[in-house]
Nucleic acid binder design. Sequence first.
DNA 1: TTAGGGTTAG
Length: 379
Amino acid sequence: MVDILGKGKKFDLMWDLVREMDDLNDGYVTLATMGKIMRRLARGGRYDEAVEAFRGLDKFGVTRDAMAMNLLMDALAKEKSVEHAYEAFCEFKDCTPLNIRTFNILIDGWCKAGKLENAERTMDEMKKHGFVPDVVSYTSFIEHYCREKDFRKVDEIFKEMQEKGCKPNAVTYTIAMHALGKAKQINEALEVYAKMKSDGCLPDAKFYSSLIFILSKAGRIKDANEIFEDMKKQGVMSDVSTYTTMISSACELSQEEDALKLLRKMEDSCKPNLKTYAPLLKMCCKKRRMKVLNFLLIHMFRNDVSIDAGTYTLLVRGLCMSGKLELACSFFEEMVSKGMVPMNATYKMLVEELNKNCMGEAKEQIEKLMSQVKPQESV
DNA sequence: TTAGGGTTAG
């Protein structure tokens, strides 16, 4: 069912159909389907309809249990509409089972929206319902204070967790360490790593990937490499994000050989994605390495990774800056032919360069292409 | 069914 939900009008048609369905459902509509419908509606700003879908669950023989409730809460809160999630929570809390996740979704939503008082109020409400705040609840608050760079408050929450006997986990430590690294407090970030180890909490691939990132950004390439080697010894497999971080760091240093070696090596354990290729492509444009660029495009094709609008933009701009205008034009054309609309700034940059280089014919071609696309769909 | 990173510019 979900697979044929389709996009745009097709989705609306399916949603109308589901709405008009009655007890003839016969199990075609499952909670998973309804979860996706609610998410899709919330994403389109159709909050009331998402709530309506939840209200109608009984009709399909789908139980309105805590899991169903959380799917609705998550759909609404994820789409930057924690207020709507809370409204729905108030409507259903007395007639639907709740669990700790229901509250954690709301707490995280309030924290991400910067509405701390509401987050605290929801935490109190959670306690009244007999749930004890867990590591996820506290981590949402830590994330909020990290975003605010209020590390004194972050420490306070760590202390509170200790008092309550709630152990931070790899996610909690990743958030704190990453934020300190971003705030250029690299030593404090490394202290978090030390504390984590002394607490007996095992780092995972995502944690290592963050650690490698902040070390690289701080220019501590040797340390980053050591961590990359060390994680294997600790029994944690590098994943696509670890490799992407390492590749991106090598590219920033223009270390082409190292970057390509990593790309080759990662294929033994995981598949590169668009984010892996982006820094490589950027480096090739900058260094005018057209043969390597070509190699990468073939590599991407082989790995079934197709170029998105952001990557086309990167290519067009990168090639413009390196004076490879013919190639820039052909990527621009390819982008448009795939139905993507270039940003005005990218278009202007290309036209300006073509002008400077007296490439009148190519300029006309680009202008003609641009006049055929709808500007409101700019990406 | 809940929490974790850069990623198009600069």
